[in-house]
Amino acid sequence: MSRPLRAEIDLEALAHNYRYAKSLSHGRTLAVIKADAYGHGLLRVAQCLCGGDGFAVATIEEAVALREAGLRNRILVLEGVFDREGMCEAAWRRLDLVVHSGYQLELLKALPETRPLSIWLKVDTGMGRLGFDGADAPGIYADLAALSAVRECVLITHLACADEADSPHNHLQLQRFDATARAIETQRTVRSLPFAQSIANSAALIGLPDARRQWDRAGVMLYGINPHMGSGQDHNLKSAMTLRSRLIAVRSARAGESVGYGCDYRFYHDGRFGIVACGYGDGYPRHAPSGTPVLVCGRRAQLIGRVSMDMLAVDLSAIPEARVGTEVELWGGALPVAEIAASAGSIAYELLTGVTQRVPRVYGNGTRLESGGGADRAAGPDSPAP
């Protein structure tokens, strides 16, 4: 019998969350499926959402994997490309590209005669990572308009504080972006290159209506995480991943006895505890402290002692019916991953993307489950459409 740990992926929850993102958008919505779809499986998630407006990934390798799996949707590469080979590959694969630096603009200008590309011109309005200065954007737009290799320009930026809806920095970034967009609109060249805008990520889609434009980008909300709610979850979003295992041992402890590395946890009275087949080698946060919640028999129990590579311990003193083989939920619909992340001093993004490949992904539509292989296996025709 195989190890009982598994990550159950609810495809209908993913489709529901995408529909909710679409309901907030004023235009079209890209499903952000970078980093193996936040740990949920790149190809399976893409197949589930293939009826949507398109996808956004971080790297060209992710985009190529989608194309080779037969996905024909629009695919935006958020980091763009870094050399001539990547630029040619993007053109051949009909990918949308972010251009955020001068060297990428030069690569585009040197591109041989090919199918024209949709270019997303990134401006830095206050994130401080990637992007051109807004004052330079009108001239760059004019350069793009002069290139036969470009068929469309989307002005894009990223908000630094979108998960803090009341932050004045959001207003500042929107002001800068709108000023840049107006400057481009007022100097459109004779060749009227189609022009659109994109600002909103998940946090802005939910909490900043003024950031919604022709293209929005739904990321973490697709997987059931509301970035505005800390350790809670919004009723409009459904958790897409449940990390589930079983008790592989149940033991008694006397007052004063310890459990785990470092003898960090000691029982103050006689008790009972169980060992769960899951550890930091599977992606569970190593620094989750004693007291982190775990569901056993559908009831809250507490993590005790240090998390090991392959195992963790939970206090069963108040759950006498728990025994070897009892199911344990480490996070999911009844125990938000954001709550576990907060307990461990982390964020839900890190926990979801950190689930390792040795954890089987098991895919289902509501109650029906089927085995899957993570990023290297595409969904079948029975995957729900958004």
Rank of each mutant, 00 (worst) to 15 (best):
L155S: 03
A277C: 09
L193W: 12
K109D: 13
N201M: 12
C161Q: 14
P381G: 12
A211P: 00
G291S: 05
D310M: 13
R115V: 14
T125H: 01
Q175N: 13
C48F: 07
C297N: 12
A334Y: 06
G51P: 06
I9K: 02
A31C: 06
L205D: 00
L316E: 02
P112R: 07
G224I: 03
C297S: 10
L5R: 00
I248H: 01
I140S: 03
P227S: 10
L24K: 00
P4G: 03
P360S: 07
T180L: 04
A58S: 15
D136G: 07
A142I: 07
D124S: 07
C297Q: 06
L5G: 00
Y18V: 02
Y363D: 05
G271V: 13
G283E: 07
S231A: 11
L193R: 11
P112G: 06
T326E: 11
S101L: 08
E62N: 14
R300F: 09
E339G: 08
I33V: 14
K22T: 04
V123T: 05
Y20P: 02
Q104Y: 02
V190N: 06
R28W: 06
V259E: 03
C153R: 01
R244C: 07
T189G: 10
E12A: 04
L111D: 05
A179W: 01
I33N: 01
V32K: 00
E89F: 02
I119D: 00
V328E: 03
R151E: 09
N73T: 03
G364Q: 09
R217F: 02
R246G: 03
A37D: 01
G281M: 02
S371K: 12
W120D: 01
R361Q: 12
T353A: 14
Q302E: 13
E339P: 07
H235C: 14
W92I: 10
P285M: 11
S198C: 15
I347N: 11
R368S: 15
I347G: 09
L174F: 14
H26G: 14
L369I: 12
L159T: 10
S383A: 15
G219S: 04
R246N: 08
G39D: 05
A334G: 13
S23W: 05
G373D: 08
R74V: 00
D210H: 12
R44T: 14
R323S: 10
A90T: 12
I206E: 00
C48I: 06
R182H: 14
E61I: 08
R306G: 08
G51D: 15
H287D: 04
G333E: 11
R368C: 12
E321Q: 11
L159F: 14
E185G: 15
G230C: 04
A165R: 11
S252D: 09
G374P: 00
I75T: 01
S148E: 15
S252H: 10
R6P: 01
I225T: 04
I33C: 06
